[in-house]
Computed example of a mutant assay.
Amino acid sequence: MSVLETYEKHDPGQPVARVIGGVCIMAVVLFAALGPLMVPGDPFAQSLMKALAGPEAAAPLGYDHLGRSVYHRLAQALRLSPLIALASVATAGTAGLLLGTLAAARGGWIDRLLTMLADALLALPGLLLVLIVLAMVPGTALGFWAGLSLVLWVEFFRLTRAATRETLASPAVQASRLLGFGPAYLFRVHVWPEIAPMMLTAAAFGTATAIMAIAALGFVHVGMPAPTPELGLMMVELLPYWREAPLALLSPVIATFALLLGLTLLAGSRRT
């Protein structure tokens, strides 16, 4: 019986959390992918005659203050933010995995230098680093990707370094080295199976963190420029009109909550 199976045996709520998390994420993904196909429309089209109007067949979630379909803008926003977050996590995870393995395997000045760099970045607030990058590349997906990758790689690096050092010191790895197996074999057979669950958990949490950061910066008008459909920007644009169009405001809020809840439940259910 695996460690995960043993854990789930003593904590039966974990499979339930995983199912709920998967359903939340799948619902968001299906809406973002299939929503515009079921109800065709333009997320940028404006009609001031329909400003803050309620739901109708062409706009099932109503219209915003500029007469744009909230349904189609939300579907577009749920493609943009997760894609930036996933790209950032993929870049940060790859960098953290490679550098963490290098630091653990080589040790010496390489380990000290990389650890010092990670600690220096960790000492700075994450949003501040993203803001610094956005100041150089303002209002672009590239800026968010670079800034979030710079913030997120530290966590992957620290996890990989700690787990790899412990694994490389194990008797099984020492025996494999005596038998003449190279670094690629040691990583594939011994290191990766040990760190994979932690990396997947960190990736889920990192994706949630990146989505929250993008939405938070959009909420304070530092993120993607208007009229780009983005979750935080949609919330801040619709907040003054919450009495006139509560459904329009609640739509990005509920979608963001469902996405973050799903990622958090999936990440928490993978802890061993």
Rank of each mutant, 00 (worst) to 15 (best):
V3Q: 14
V3Y: 11
H10C: 04
P12G: 05
A17W: 15
A17S: 10
R18Q: 05
G21N: 02
G21M: 03
I25C: 09
V28Y: 00
F31L: 07
P43G: 11
P55E: 15
P55A: 13
P55T: 11
H65C: 06
R68P: 00
R68W: 00
S69E: 01
Y71M: 13
A77P: 00
L80A: 12
L80C: 07
S81Q: 10
L83M: 08
L83S: 12
I84C: 08
A87F: 06
S88A: 15
V89P: 01
A95V: 11
L97M: 13
L98T: 11
W109S: 09
D111F: 04
R112F: 05
L114I: 07
T115Y: 08
A118K: 00
L121D: 11
G126I: 13
L129Y: 13
I132C: 15
V133Y: 02
M136A: 15
G139F: 04
G139N: 07
A141M: 13
L142H: 15
L148G: 00
S149H: 02
L152I: 13
W153D: 02
E155D: 15
F157H: 08
R158E: 15
L159Y: 12
A162D: 13
A172E: 14
V173C: 13
Q174W: 13
S176N: 06
L179N: 14
G182E: 05
P183I: 08
L186R: 06
R188G: 03
W192Y: 14
P193N: 14
E194A: 10
I195A: 02
I195T: 10
M199H: 09
A204H: 06
F205G: 03
A208T: 11
I211S: 01
M212H: 07
A215I: 01
G218A: 04
G218K: 00
F219K: 09
H221W: 06
V222N: 04
M224S: 10
P225A: 07
P225I: 05
P227C: 05
P229S: 14
E230H: 03
L231I: 08
L231D: 03
M234R: 02
E237H: 09
A248F: 03
L249A: 04
L250A: 06
V253G: 01
A255K: 02
F257I: 13
L261R: 08
L261I: 06
A267C: 10
R270P: 00
